[in-house]
Amino acid sequence: MDSALATTDPADLHAGQEHGHVSLPQHRHHFETVEQQREAGSFGMWLFLLTEIMFFGGMFFAYLVYRNWYYPAFAVASNQLSVSIGTLNTMLLITSGFCMAIAVWAAEMRKRSLLLAMLMLTTLLGIVFLGFKSSEYYEKYELHHIPGNNFNVSMFTNPAGYGIKEAPLPPDMAQKTQVFFFLYFAMTGMHALHMIIGLGLLCWLIWRANRGDFSSGYVAPVENFGLYWHFIDIVWLFLYPLLYLINRHPLH
């Protein structure tokens, strides 16, 4: 793959010409046109993203069902999350997505330094997001709100003792807050894992962009990574209201 990308190498040009035309990374010889290759790439990326929708969809479905079953536990547990950190993180991710979109434009316009700057900004904002996320996780760890043997329900059976204005839950319902926190960690954890993978890919893209791979009309890796990064954005756009917002005013 690397050799095909170094199109300025005369040896590669010669190898490409054996098939009757110059083989560019954005137009490999088994594609009729540049547009056809581009569309095939987008199509494949979207098929992958559809499997991701199914994957995250399963967790959203579990959230829907359990929220209906254990509504009081979900409302109280959800209200222990910090809306300000959640909102800030949402803004950070949207900004990161904006930088990624500009990066795709920069690659299309063959602006190497702008592309590099935008990819780095995207990475930086992603890292800050994960920083806030881990501080939230650490708070839950200190409060013993991570599901398992060390889970502590006393904040939910005796909220007044912790200065929290919530109705106390009966002990069996208070145990169900573990279901909320399990889904919270599973959903935000899988989202964070996708971001960590994305940050790894961003480093790879920065390295290649710096080498000039994406400044001569070859945009596919940047564009398809953009789709992935925006998909992560989309997942968070649903996680944010579901986990942080919709239980502020429990139905009575």
């Binding site: 547009e35 056809q36 997505g97 904006f98 979109a101 500009i102 434009w105 299309e108």
Partner: peptide, 20 residues
């Protein structure tokens, strides 16, 4: 024969900014 593929459409930074 290629007409079924959408022509490359480049979204401008101004559009991205509005979306943002």
């Amino acid at each position: 024969p290629r007409s079924e593929q959408a022509q490359l459409h480049i979204v401008t930074p101004a559009q991205y900014l509005v979306v943002y």
